[in-house]
Design a protein around this nucleic acid. Structure first.
Lengths: 224, 224
DNA sequence: GTGCATGATGGAACTGAGTCCCAAATCGCG
DNA sequence: CGCGATTTGGGACTCAGTTCCATCATGCAC
């Protein structure tokens, strides 16, 4: 919801990605790349640390935002996780052209795909830690790591769908998915499993009714 | 259940791990390591590909076993996943001393921890592909990747618990966890969840969602 | 303005991983 | 034993990443 973030990803980073996508990652030496973004080999390493890190520069922003968001949030745990994750996605595709370019670069470069796994694992750690903090007492120990991993996986899945053009509103699709996913874990994340704080809708209809008629009935129940 | 596997992990691999654990990963050059396992630098790279891959040599076995197990199994999908995953764990800790040694080495070596993420991601891919094959028609697209990631996470979590001495029977503990985890996904994995002549729709949503978002979700389910 | 401290830059030299290529050794087989 | 095929060892090479030092720009006191 904050969604502002003046987001000036050190624009040398996107320039670097563009150069790599055009000339090929393996074929580009660190010296070429440094020259392409207008600095010496020396300063390039000083600033970016390595040849691959330049590609994932804005993950640092997204990760920091997620961490802070989860720390400060006043939402219910499940809602906070949905919110935080879709915010990450929004940040990563805020500039669609840059996102597609990086995707194309990674599609062509196995070394970068591997590196991405390492980067995204940091999100998993953040999620898992947060879930451990907010989960109900007595929650089984497998819950936090599996949900943490699932959130990352759902995010990546939604991102790929969007990149392949299968959905137009990526963050909307993701938050739908995440709501379903986190619902699976609701018993361990929400204090009150009692019907008071959550509502359960059960609709039973025979196979002869049209989908429309069912929808009408459901709508009537929800909005009265 | 097969569980035999004469398991001669190229024993040069465990020798390499031992050497690395003793002398330190960074401090060991490829030449040292090659000499330690009794071959020239040249052949070392030919055989293992890289300095880190020697540490993860038996993951190849475990992965191949998992892939084959999932392909040939006659079990229900959930049972197959539980079984396959615990088999992987069993294989990896069959030699407890070697497992602990590798763990210690990785604890001390960030580069290897990163590398491990890449290796274990291959399991995730295998799981996800299998789940896509066996899932019920109409299963939402987020199910396979999240469950796949969860299986890996649960496995790793159980492995760590065992390494830290918190549980004695690791595979037993893991299969208990996995049964609970896969139970969450049962609706999409087992056929007999939907009565033939009538369909039952159950939507659970938290009080924070707007009526519209619920309606959307219901509509999506009905018209798929 | 001059002198001076500080921090960023460029450049050169170095280490070590991974690749390539060729020659020697080893193996399999008649 | 002989001979082709595969495997091994060794040396040369490329390039990422590190370290160290000289240079330069910046800012500040006087």
């Amino acid at each position: 919801m904050p969604a502002n973030a003046q987001g000036t990803i050190p624009e040398s980073s996107t320039a670097a990605i563009r150069f790599l996508a055009e000339h090929g990652y393996e074929a580009t030496t660190a010296e070429d790349l440094a020259a392409a973004v207008g600095m010496s080999r020396s300063t390039f390493f000083r600033r970016f640390g390595s040849k691959d890190d330049v590609v994932f520069a804005d993950h640092d922003h997204a990760l920091a935002q997620l961490e802070e968001g989860l720390e400060r949030t006043t939402l219910e745990p499940t809602a906070a996780l949905v919110e935080g994750t879709t915010d990450v996605l929004r940040l990563l595709i805020r500039d669609p052209d840059a996102a597609r370019l990086r995707f194309e670069l990674m599609r062509l470069t196995p070394a970068l795909r591997d590196r991405e796994l390492v980067i995204t694992h940091r999100y998993e750690r953040v999620y898992t830690r947060y879930i451990r903090e907010v989960q109900q007492p007595g929650t089984p120990s497998w819950v936090a790591p599996t949900l943490g991993a699932s959130l990352v996986a759902a995010h990546n899945s939604a991102l790929r769908s969007w990149l392949r053009g299968r959905v137009s509103d990526a963050s909307r699709a993701l938050s739908d998915d995440l709501r379903q996913l986190t619902a699976l874990y609701a018993p361990w994340l929400s204090e009150n499993d009692a019907p008071a704080e959550r509502r359960v809708l059960v609709a039973v209809y025979d196979a002869l009714g049209s989908p429309e008629s069912v929808l009408d009935a459901v709508a009537e129940q929800l909005t009265r």
